[in-house]
Structure formats: structure tokens, C-alpha cells
Design a protein around this nucleic acid. Structure first.
Lengths: 235, 235
DNA sequence: TCAAAAGTGTTCAATCTACACCCATGG
DNA sequence: CCATGGGTGTAGATTGAACACTTTTGA
């Protein structure tokens, strides 16, 4: 894998993605660690000259997670000057390549479009890219210090996710195709960061009319078997 | 006024602004008409090399409306390929300048960040820029056909404005400093596109705790004088 | 037959909606 | 003293939160 070439990308434009996954208990996000620096950052990328923005983000996610057709939502575009940190970028390149030119397109200012994704944690084997030596899951309530304004970006993503949770059936990709009501509730609780009342949660979800009920799941537990549900995919 | 020079702006990045105003009855937006083409478009602009994105948009608005410190909200970033319409841009330049070079930075692809603003309709004398020969108010429910994807951008802005109306005290800049409850209600009705119940609207607004009541306004009408209100500006 | 988890019912309070009523004002 | 618009009161419906009760399952 080689470094990205300037010529094929739109200059000054990047995207950063906050990739949420659900472990069965906690909400997590994918973070990269750069070679030999101890620095963490969000996975991001650049947009090709003749590539739609949305497609660029999908491509990046595909490369890093191997997943096709995942839920993606754009939430904000970051364009302040505090974002500009050429020295940091220089150190990242230096940590990997002995010779770094005085000028490099990665040292320029970038305006970055923020996206978040919701994916099935269990289906992913995260792939590091050329600049990072590891990529891994971290609890959203224990995110380390990140480069640039990436902590701020994570905050904004979480806020957006929380306030739009009901309207869209966001949880689609955080769970397997079929799931129990308890699992769905755990997803909500992990995202909102607070316990929900079981009985009321069930009623509320069913009243939304977005769930289809299937046969019961005999879990082997010594208790009543729960129904399985799936989301009704509309148009 | 001269054409924008490529060198001072970030390439491939633009913003488009949907500027809402309230006439006392209807919600309106500002649209530009290009010289000798009959084409309409949203007012937009570019970001200088060392300028924060937000500041670039404020600057553009200041130049076009003369207003300082107005409510601005970023709502979406548009990056599809359907946006790219070099022929249209060429015609716009041709309509004004006899000689147009084969290549020009304005013919390149742009990713555009959408913002909307809420301003006091009565305080503005819209200023056309170098490319447009007029800029004027149009009813939101009678927007003409616009260039590029600008009709789509207006749709998105309206949708965002409607769904976030309660949370933020958005109406701040659509009305004069002090206003009656009836005026505020008219703003809401114009934005939401539906009548509100007078009594309940009053209670709801007061319960939000964001309004300060002032002395009564003796309007001269033969009826009870209404109170004046202003928004309480917090932190 | 017991414990645990799932599904459903019930109650009470808070909120929303519609409409009624009274008040201030100028003609 | 009447018409008009503004402010507040109230009954009924709707929604939401808390908690109780019943059912199913394997041990």
C-alpha cells in the first residue's frame, strides 16, 4: 500500500468518518493509531477528482471494513482554521518515511466533511491503511485524545446520532438481520447512555410500525423465549 | 466589482446560502438573476485560503445584505457529480465578458457547503455581485427553476429549518428586536406552512422561557393592546 | 415448582388540543 | 356600547412513565 498521490484527489477536501459499532454491551468507535507516534485519529480519506462525495466515503469504509452498503449519514462540515496543523501531519509522515519534502499537499489546509456509520461490530476485521499501524475499537465513553479536532468531531457525531435516533431506523446495521427486543433496547441504551424502561420501550418500538415480528427464538435460557424482529425496509 | 480571482480562494470549494426573510406574511428567500441569461441561482461564494469556512459565509452575507452578526446555520454539504455543469457556468461568464478562456477555475467541479440565514427582511437592501444583475426576494412556495442543484438545496434548507424550529430560537433575526405574539406566530406559520392555534401557541412559547415581556403596544387598533416581547439572549 | 426473562395491563400524571370566556381599546 | 383582537381558563383526549401481573421456559 502506498501513500495517496496528490494528483488524483480534490485538494483541500477530506472526509472523516466516525464508525460506530455495538459490542452487545457498549457503543464503540473505530480509531486509527499512526506508526511510531502514539497518536490516534479518526479514519478518513480524500475525494477523487471524478468521484461523488458519498461514494468516496463508502469506498473508504469498504477498504477499511470490507463492508458493502452500510448506513452512512453526513452530519457536519468542519472548516475552521484551528484544524490546520501541518507540523502534526509532518511528524506522521516522518515517522514512516525518512525523507519528507518541505512542501506536501497533506500539509495544506483541509475542509473536512464528517460522516458517521453504523455497522455490525462482529462482521468486521478492521484494516489499517498506509499511514496507520493499527485500527481498533474503543468505547465511546473512553475515547483517547485524538489528533486535530477529531475529539470535537466525535462529539458532534454522537450528538447528531442521539437526536435523530427515533426518526430514522438507524440501528439497522448495528445488529444482525434478526434480533430480539432486548438487543434493540441495549443498542438504544448504549447510544443514549441511559436505561430505558423495558415495557415502555417495547410498546414504543412496536408503535413505530417499523418492526416485523418473526418466530420465537429458543435461546436455551430457562425463561420465556423472545420473539425475533427485523426492520421493515421501506422503499 | 471584478470577477473573483482563482488564486485567493480554495479550489473546488464553495458555499451556497439560503437567506430567509419574513415579509410580515410570507417566508421569502433571496435569489440572484444572472446577467442576460434569465437564470436564477442562490447567492454563494468561495472560501479564501486563510479564512474559516463560517467566516467566509458571514462575509458573503455581509457583502450582499449589509448585515452584521446574523443567525447562520450550516445544514448540509453537497458533493454529487450531477452538480458539475461547466457549460452553464461558461454561458454565465460569456453573457458578461466577450472572451472566455477555454479553461477557467469556475468550470471545475465544486463541493458546496449549504448554509441558511434568517434575517430581518425590512433591514436589507440586497446588493448584486459581479456576475448577477439583480438579487431579489421570492416566496418560498413560488421559487422559480434554479441553476445546478439549487432547488434541491432550498428543499433541504427548508426541511432542516422546519425540524429544528423549536429547539433553537431561530426566529431571532426574522423579526425586529421587539415583536408581538401574533407576529411570532405568523413567522412560525409561514415556516411550517400551517396554522397554529392562537391560545396554545402563546402558552407554548411562554413555557419555553426564552421570551421577555415588555410594555404593551398601543397599536391604534380598536382592540386590546398586545404585549411586546423580545428574545432572552442566553450566555 | 422455581427463578428468570418476556409479554401485556393498568394507573396516574403530564401534555396537547380545542374551544370558551372575559378584557381592553377605538370608533 | 359594539366589534375586534388579545389574554387566560378549562374539559377532554392523547401520550408517557412507573409498576404490577401473567406466561413461558429449562433446570
Amino acid at each position: 500500500m502506498s501513500l495517496p498521490e496528490a494528483v488524483q484527489y480534490l485538494p483541500h477536501i477530506a472526509y472523516d468518518s466516525v464508525i460506530f459499532g455495538f459490542s452487545g454491551e457498549k457503543l464503540k468507535i473505530l480509531l486509527m493509531e499512526y506508526h511510531n507516534t502514539g497518536w490516534f485519529a479518526l479514519p478518513g480519506g480524500f475525494v477523487k477528482i471524478n468521484e461523488p462525495l458519498d461514494e468516496a466515503v463508502s469506498r473508504g469504509l469498504r477498504e477499511r471494513t470490507g463492508l458493502e452498503s452500510i448506513y452512512l449519514e453526513q452530519f457536519y462540515t468542519f472548516g475552521s482554521l484551528e484544524r490546520v496543523r501541518p507540523e502534526a501531519m509532518r511528524k506522521i509522515l516522518q515517522a514512516q518515511h525518512k525523507v519528507v519534502p518541505e512542501k506536501h499537499w497533506l500539509f495544506e489546509r483541509f475542509i473536512s466533511v464528517g460522516y458517521y456509520a453504523l455497522i455490525d461490530y462482529t462482521k468486521v476485521e478492521p484494516q489499517p491503511d498506509a499511514l496507520s499501524d493499527s485500527i481498533d475499537w474503543y468505547d465511546v465513553d473512553a475515547v483517547p485524545q485524538l489528533l486535530f479536532d477529531h475529539n470535537h468531531i466525535v462529539e458532534k457525531a454522537l450528538e447528531h446520532l442521539r437526536t435523530h435516533l427515533d426518526q430514522k431506523l438507524l440501528s439497522v446495521n448495528l445488529l444482525p438481520e434478526r434480533f430480539t427486543m432486548k438487543e434493540l433496547q441495549q443498542v438504544y441504551e448504549a447510544i443514549l447512555g441511559e436505561k430505558q424502561n423495558r415495557a415502555n420501550f417495547q410498546r414504543k418500538m412496536l408503535s413505530l410500525g417499523i418492526l416485523e415480528r418473526h418466530e420465537k427464538l429458543y435461546s436455551g435460557g430457562s425463561h420465556k423465549a423472545p420473539y425475533l424482529y427485523s426492520f421493515i425496509v421501506q422503499n
